[in-house]
């Protein structure tokens, strides 16, 4: 049976993700506001927004099918599972064998397909436009992400995310050029997948260039709250996966439950630094034209392929 320590670390991880994901979003927003010489909305603003949205009634279009109403829950469920299998604090996760890196990419794809279908459900122009753009980003970002994860898999001889991180974190320090290249590709993909500048701007509404906001234009009330929360979870999961793959130090291994006590502050510190860097990227870049996005992602995809090739050549 599952040992108690694994159960605890699993539960702790999920709770941490659900609780702290909006905080990360708030932190990034705050850093960005500081960097852009604006006054920031306060660190807890995302929680207030979620609370407000949950209290409001949901307005659903008359022409909506049930897909529209279940999609937010499915997206939320997918992101919760992603956070459960990503080793944020510990690699001792009972749920980790259920889904490896390929299934992780599949989970992101599942969420993407449902949110796109929901956007097409109403039949407004913006919804379909958003769905089309989201799928456009997805079909390039997914294979790029998979290749990034594969270059880590090749090094560690495992596709299980927990095992990859376990191997990377608890071995003598070594420089992996392939992982460095993969890290660049991962950054590109993470920016695109989380609707960040330079691919999309999460702060704007109703511009002809919006992607994520166009998808969820018809949502309101608790449905919108769930989607926003899921978006925050996605950012959290991506940040954690990136940190775990490229800066794995401090994550507790199997059989060391006490290391979790250290792991939490380490993770928060790493996330805080990551948030600042994200805000910095968003500030010094301009949003690119929509048809530059495939090029941007194709670059990420090819970089990831190069990472694999470098691994085959150098064996590292």
């Amino acid at each position: 049976m599952i040992p108690l320590s694994g159960f605890v670390s699993q539960l702790l991880e999920i709770i941490l993700a659900l609780a702290f994901a909006p905080l990360l979003t708030g932190w990034v927003n705050q850093c960005r506001a500081w960097l852009q010489n604006r006054s920031a909305p306060g660190l807890l603003q995302p929680y207030r927004a979620l609370h407000k949205l949950f209290n409001k009634e949901s307005v659903v279009a008359e022409s909506a099918s049930p897909i529209f109403r279940i999609a937010p829950y499915i997206v939320f469920g997918c992101m919760a599972l992603v956070c459960a299998i990503a080793p944020t604090l510990s690699t001792d996760l009972p749920l980790a064998p259920a889904a490896d890196t390929i299934a992780l990419v599949g989970l992101f794809a599942l969420a993407r397909v449902f949110i796109s279908l929901a956007a097409m459900d109403i039949g407004t122009s913006f919804g379909t436009l958003g769905a089309r753009r989201e799928m456009l980003i997805g079909f390039l970002a997914e294979p790029a992400l998979l290749m990034v994860l594969f270059s880590a898999s090749l090094i560690t001889q495992s596709t299980s995310l927990a095992n990859i991180v376990e191997t990377l974190a608890h071995q003598p320090f070594a420089i992996y050029p392939s992982l460095a290249v993969a890290g660049v590709a991962f950054t590109f993909v993470a920016l695109a997948e989380n609707a960040r500048v330079p691919v999309d701007n999460p702060a704007t509404h109703l511009e002809l260039t919006m992607i994520h906001e166009a998808l969820i234009l018809e949502y309101s009330g608790r449905h919108l709250a769930l989607i926003e929360w899921a978006a925050a979870l996605k950012l959290f999961a991506y940040s954690c996966i990136g940190l775990a793959l490229f800066f794995p130090w401090g994550i507790a291994g199997a059989g060391t439950p006490l290391a979790m006590i250290v792991a939490i502050p380490v993770l928060l510190a790493k996330l805080a630094i990551g948030g600042v860097l994200l805000a910095l990227i968003e500030t010094i870049n301009a949003k690119m034209r929509l048809f530059r996005v495939p090029e941007f992602l194709a670059t990420a995809f090819l970089l990831a392929v190069i990472a694999l090739l470098v691994h085959v050549l150098l064996g590292a």
Binding site: A174, I175, P177, S178, A180, L314
Partner: peptide, 11 residues
């Protein structure tokens, strides 16, 4: 590590 870093710079 330094030997590995040559690989890194090459990459």
């Amino acid at each position: 590590l330094l030997t590995q870093s040559i690989n890194l710079f090459a990459t």
